[in-house]
């Protein structure tokens, strides 16, 4: 049994009038990619912000607790323990400083080595060519996919135990999505884990080890990737699978599903 990095126990949360999460419990183990799958409004992003202790002001935790390793929430959690990759990387970088300056600040704040060589090496690891140019450019000069890679490079160099990726691919085209997913696979190793939030089953099939399906604030299904087709699934999960499969059917007689399975 590998190490439990984060465990969410009986988490409920909501605004004054509206409950958003109902008794959410799950664990994230070292060395796995866990996917939270659900439609928009199912509470998956709220779960992530609860783990990050960054819930919106009008939302309050009503019950349950979140353990990071053995401890409850403490301030040293950001950076070394948890880092994030967002859907819209452009909004995560300030616009008046270069990528290099911002990267350096993040590394400094987390007591990591912050030489240019180290940063370049990190950027090369996420297959960005010309890392020096990128360090000297401003966020608006880079495309969405490139910024997303810089985010991943930051997460990589912080060596955090858990990376939370909130819809990291939704704003990219399919090729960009695949490239980012391949990098996210790289983030995972024996010692740390990735929590990925997405509405796209194709993305899940590509990276996930374990899948949690959420519907209207409840966890309805929790299974390993191999069980996706084999076992009988919860009707909601089945609905998601069917919706995904139906898109492969077309009058051209090309079975995209077959290609997808190969990946």
């Amino acid at each position: 049994m590998s190490e439990k990095l984060i465990s969410v126990e009986n988490l409920s949360a909501g605004t004054k009038h509206n409950q958003i999460l109902y008794n959410i419990s799950f664990d994230i183990f070292a060395g796995e990619i866990l996917c939270l799958l659900g439609q928009s409004g199912s509470g998956k992003t709220m779960t992530a912000s609860a783990i990050l202790n960054m819930m919106p002001e009008n939302v309050a935790k009503t019950s349950g607790q979140i353990l990071y390793g053995e401890k409850e929430f403490h301030n040293g959690i950001y950076g070394s323990y948890i880092s994030t990759i967002m859907q819209n990387p452009a909004s995560c970088f300030g616009s008046v400083f270069t990528i290099g300056q911002q990267f350096e600040d993040i590394l400094k704040a987390n007591n990591k080595e912050y030489t240019n060589e180290k940063m370049c090496k990190m950027l090369e690891m996420v297959s960005l060519s010309n890392p020096y140019d990128i360090l000297n450019s401003y966020p608006h000069q880079l495309s969405g996919g490139m910024l997303q890679r810089v985010m991943i490079a930051v997460a990589l160099s912080l060596e955090s135990r858990v990376v939370i990726a909130d819809e990291p691919t939704s704003d990219l085209d399919v090729l960009g999505q695949k490239e980012i997913l391949d990098l996210i696979l790289k983030l995972k190793n024996k010692n740390n884990a990735v929590l990925m939030i997405t509405h796209n089953l194709s993305v899940v099939k590509h990276v996930a080890d374990r899948i949690i399906v959420m519907e209207n604030g409840h966890i309805v299904d929790n299974f390993y990737k191999d069980e996706l087709y084999n076992n009988e699934r919860h009707p909601y999960t089945q609905k998601l699978i069917d919706a995904n499969e139906s898109q492969y059917i077309n009058k051209w007689n090309i079975n995209f599903g077959a290609y997808n399975a190969n990946m």
């Binding site: 439609q39 928009s40 509405h199 796209n200 609905k239 919706a243 995904n244």
Partner: peptide, 13 residues
């Protein structure tokens, strides 16, 4: 492209 999967397949249909 901006819709989630279930809705996407409904609108496709």
């Amino acid at each position: 492209s901006n819709l989630d999967m279930v809705i996407q397949s409904q609108i496709l249909k």
